[in-house]
């Protein structure tokens, strides 16, 4: 997994790339959580994520819940077909914010 962060005003956009599994979830959290804790609205661009397992989905849930707790939000953008399929399998398409 690799990532790129860009910030504009209060919005931080994180472009994730590659496969997100248990082996990289800590790294993903280290990237996303500080932005949420800083009160940023986080846009997660998942266009280049070819694979995500339950560990990756857990990061999305934790991020969403942490943001809600701190009065901000995490928005999932340009979700790849394979990741969207897993989100839907987890029945989370109505819970997570997807644009």
């Amino acid at each position: 997994m690799s990532y790129k962060i860009s910030e504009e005003g209060n919005v931080a956009t994180v472009h994730l790339d590659g496969e997100i599994d248990m082996d990289v979830t800590e790294k993903a959290k280290e990237v996303i959580m500080p932005l949420i804790e800083a009160g940023k609205e986080v846009h997660l661009n998942l266009k280049e994520v070819q694979y995500m397992d339950s560990s990756g989905i857990s990061v999305l849930i934790e991020s969403h819940q942490k943001a809600a707790e701190l009065g901000t939000k995490v928005i999932l953008k340009e979700i790849s077909k394979s990741v969207l399929k897993v989100i839907m399998m987890a029945k989370l398409e109505q819970i997570l914010i997807i644009e």
Binding site: D53, I61, V86
Partner: peptide, 16 residues
């Protein structure tokens, strides 16, 4: 199915 929390999803996916 309606319990939104991290964890337990892997077994759920396998079953699906």
């Amino acid at each position: 199915i309606d319990d939104v929390k991290p964890g337990g999803l892997g077994t759920f996916f396998i079953g699906q």
